[in-house]
């Protein structure tokens, strides 16, 4: 066929889509700004809904990345983007030119910077961490303790940090945090069975077959306690434990609680890479800053420009599973486009 494709972003979506297209015989160049591929997957320990090790997916992707026809370009960013008759020419920061008949944008997401919720004291109080931090700690296998090395007696997971919050400018639901919070609560309970665990939520969005099952398991087998109330603030006690305040909405009274560790379930945001590439390619963004798709039902991988496609969480928050599916459909859309053009 001899047609070439450039994929921007070598995370889950970028590698998956590129692997399929390479199998179909296309020459695919994958541009990745980091030294290694796989995106944020390397930071995750276990994946919901079946608690598989994230490494299994990493291994799968690393095999996929070796598909004949794929060339990986680590430590590379796009400096310029040009339209030509047969497609596009992209120039890298190293001065290399890539010509492409089609481009896939797979620049992924960023984790919400929790320090923007100043009242929760992230990066100020010793024992306030994010779900992303916890995932790394679980993966490292080191014992889960407070900064001072104490086994936490009580831990609070805080849902919707940086999501569904007009005050930080993110009014959307990040979709993965509810289940992540309950998954992590279960994992912590397995490690520290004597520790009391509370999840503070506004609505628990445990959709589908598996997620509701995780919720039920958390209640039945792991004694996770769920409190319906949004946190107003976190402050630090003299012993470096944390005082958290919320409304216990079901009893209708303000509630305070001392905990040893607070885990903020941070949402997703469009990354700086997505913003930069979107602007360079001159494609449209939606109101939330993600890349805009022209039809939510029928064109989930298209952008506002012909020949430029989108794969994965640069178009909206997605789980690993959703990302892989979205990448596969992106590959199909690109293939169809290249056959037709």
């Amino acid at each position: 066929m001899g047609k070439s494709i450039v994929t921007i972003g070598g995370g889950i979506a970028g590698i998956e889509a590129s692997g399929i297209l390479a199998e179909l015989g296309y020459a695919v160049s994958v541009i990745e700004k980091e030294p290694d591929f796989g995106g944020k997957l390397k930071n995750w320990d276990h994946l919901f809904p079946n608690m598989r090790k994230a490494e299994e997916i990493e291994d799968y992707l690393s095999r996929k990345g070796k598909t004949p026809g794929i060339t990986l370009f680590p430590n590379t960013t796009i400096a310029s983007f040009e339209n030509i008759k047969s497609g596009f020419v992209l120039k890298s920061n190293h001065g290399v030119s890539y010509s492409a008949h089609a481009v896939i944008v797979a620049t992924g997401f960023e984790v919400f910077s929790a320090e923007r919720k100043e009242e929760y004291g992230y990066k100020i109080y010793d024992n306030v961490i994010t779900s992303a931090d916890l995932e790394k700690r679980l993966k490292s296998g080191t014992p889960l303790t407070t900064l001072a090395g104490k086994t936490p007696q009580r831990i609070a997971f805080i849902h919707c940090v940086g999501s569904r919050d007009a005050k930080v400018g993110n009014t959307y639901c990040s979709k993965v945090c509810c289940v992540t919070g309950v998954k992590q609560a279960i994992e912590v309970n397995k490690l520290l069975p004597a520790t009391q665990i509370f999840n503070f939520y506004m609505d628990l969005r445990m959709h589908g077959l598996e997620h509701e099952e995780i919720y039920k398991t958390a209640q039945e087998k792991h004694n996770i306690q769920f409190i319906r109330g949004r946190l107003s603030e976190v402050s630090e006690n003299i012993d470096h434990s944390l005082l958290i305040k919320a409304e216990d909405t079901l009893s209708g009274r303000p509630l305070k609680m001392n905990v040893d560790l607070v885990v903020l379930l941070v949402g997703m945001e469009p990354g700086v890479g997505t913003t930069a590439i979107g602007k360079a390619c001159n494609i449209e963004f939606n109101q939330y800053g993600y890349l805009k798709i022209p039809d939510v039902h029928l064109a989930g991988n298209l952008t506002s420009r012909k020949g430029i496609f989108v794969a994965g969480s640069c178009s909206c928050p997605m789980s690993v599973k959703d990302t892989i599916e979205h990448a596969r459909s992106a590959a199909f859309e690109v293939h169809r486009y290249l056959i037709e053009n």
């Binding site: 946190l231 919320a246 909405t249 303000p254």
Partner: peptide, 15 residues
Amino acid sequence: CISCGGCTATCSAGN
């Protein structure tokens, strides 16, 4: 309004 209770948690009078 989604009745999250953030308001009540921080309310000067309700405390």
